[in-house]
Design a binder for these strands. Sequence first.
DNA 1: GCCAACGTTGGC
DNA 2: GCCAACGTTGGC
Length: 152
Amino acid sequence: MNYWLMKSEPETFGIEHLQRAPRHTHCWDGVRNYQARNYMRDSMRIGDQAFFYHSNCNPPGIVGIIEICSESYPDYTAFDPDSKYYDPKSSPDKSRWFMRDVKFIKKFSNIISIAELRANKELHQMVILKPGNRLSITPITDKEWQMVLKML
DNA sequence: GCCAACGTTGGC
DNA sequence: GCCAACGTTGGC
């Protein structure tokens, strides 16, 4: 089992959206970066868990835990000209982008802010804390996973 | 296949 | 809203 960190803007799709979704489950659409796509398409496994990270908000940080609950399948928002995720170079025949379904597991009573993550010396290797990193999906080591949970 | 221009991300 | 750091695009 692998661990991940998945970013989303709370105004677009926050952890409350997932919590309220039918069966606590929703697709994770809109990934338009090849590395993040490869993680999602090739590296994730059903049952992997991920931190849900709220970005572009105040404060940004980890707000809960979700679980990967489907295999990867074509991200159909790329086929829809009206979608903000539309990509004319992706087609149902030959999809460029993929997604998976994720399930709400838990919302933390307090956010673990990026400032707190940065202040934790044990987490200096976390991909998301490295300068200039913008990947929306990043792997988390077992050690990092445990350490973050200790910060609750 | 180089690389300049452009668009996006996201913390601050 | 600023802007640095990236990724992508497309002319050549």
